[in-house]
């Protein structure tokens, strides 16, 4: 039965393709063999042009225009007003004194989130990778286990954790067993921020573990053999061989983590009901989203100016990453 079905499918594909072939072959003859690669590239480049390069150009257009019109050509030119509005502030450390206090709240929230998340994820991923790199039973199982959350959707993760942290959830049940009074974790600023970081580490650490593990397995084994002959202590082996040789990988992972952490949105949005409590977990992407789509105001100019600023930061991080990646290859 299965064989029959696949044979039918094959026939079908064959038939469709031979039909598709006719016009393409004609086009090929018309253009000449030399220009065929352009034909193959066309769909991709058209899509990139329309949905990536055009938006970049429009982005700049939005950032220097005001009003609420959607189409750039209908918007009045305001120069750098949007940037001025975002950046005018009496005291940058206190968002309340800024003209766009929400923007600065988001910046500071993102700043602290990136800091804690990068350090925590890197540490957890590194320790896990080092342990998994030891020859041991069940390595494949554990590697798969830690990787599993990476594949889940941010909405699913947000909801699963929201339920886990519910007033009637498992964590509170555990707290009660221990004699600790229950908490409404996601409505208390400190706890909510803590759990946004924890959920993020839980979600993504498997991915970074995998990259670091690949780096660890690329370290030449004879170095460890030499260390064993010299009766080097395990600590010395770690600090004199493993970590220095893993260094470039660690740096790449660090930058990658920073790039991704700056863009925190999906799972935090679901978990904290849109950045709550209050604005304690409102991050920069959320600010852009809310300015542009969150209300009927459609402050596209402000949103785009914020996007451009974030884009510049991300671009700088990416350039550092590329540089490091090139260096890694040279080694």
């Amino acid at each position: 039965m299965a064989i029959k079905a696949s044979a039918v499918l094959e026939r079908l594909v064959e038939g469709v393709m031979s039909l598709v072939e006719i016009p393409i072959n004609a086009l090929e003859r018309l253009m000449g063999r030399k220009r065929v690669p352009y034909l193959f590239l066309a769909p991709n480049l058209v899509l990139f042009g329309i949905f990536t390069f055009l938006p970049i150009a429009i982005s700049v257009g939005y950032a220097v225009t005001g009003g609420t019109n959607l189409f750039v050509t209908d918007r009045p030119f305001v120069g750098l007003d949007n940037f001025r509005q975002l950046l005018s502030c009496q005291d940058y450390s206190r968002p309340g004194t800024c003209q766009e206090s929400l923007f600065w709240t988001a910046i500071w929230n993102t700043f602290w989130f990136v800091g804690f998340n990068v350090v925590a994820t890197l540490l957890v991923a590194l320790v896990t990778a080092l342990i998994l790199n030891r020859a041991m039973v069940g390595r494949g199982f554990f590697r798969a286990m830690f990787f599993y959350p990476v594949l889940l959707s941010p909405v699913v993760i947000g909801l699963i954790w929201k339920w886990f942290l519910d007033r009637n959830g498992l964590l509170n049940a555990f707290f009660e067993m221990m004699g600790v009074p229950p908490h409404v974790f996601l409505l208390e600023v400190g706890w909510a921020r803590f759990f946004v970081v924890l959920v993020s580490v839980w979600f993504h650490m498997g991915f970074y573990t995998l990259i670091l593990l690949a780096g660890l397995q690329a370290i030449p084994k004879d170095l460890y053999e030499a260390a064993a002959i010299d009766a080097a202590s395990r600590r010395r082996t770690l600090f004199a061989i493993t970590l220095p040789l893993l260094g470039p990988n660690l740096l790449v992972v660090l930058i990658l983590l920073m790039i991704r952490s700056v863009q925190i949105f999906d799972e935090a949005w679901v978990l904290t009901n849109g950045g709550g409590p209050g604005t304690a977990n409102s991050f920069i992407v959320q600010y852009i989203y809310q300015m542009a789509f969150g209300s009927d105001l459609r402050l596209l100019g402000l949103a785009s100016a914020a996007s451009v600023l974030m884009g510049v930061v991300l671009l700088a991080l990416t350039l550092v990453q590329l540089r490091l990646a090139r260096k890694t290859e040279e080694i």
Partner: peptide, 29 residues
């Protein structure tokens, strides 16, 4: 072909532009 390297670099460079940066204008498109 002419410009093959340039096209490759152009495509790869879009890796640097995450959706979060261009979502507002992409919506306009």
């Amino acid at each position: 072909f002419r410009g093959d390297k340039a096209v490759f670099v152009l495509i790869i460079s879009t890796l640097m532009i995450p959706l979060t940066v261009v979502m507002v204008p992409a919506y306009m498109v």
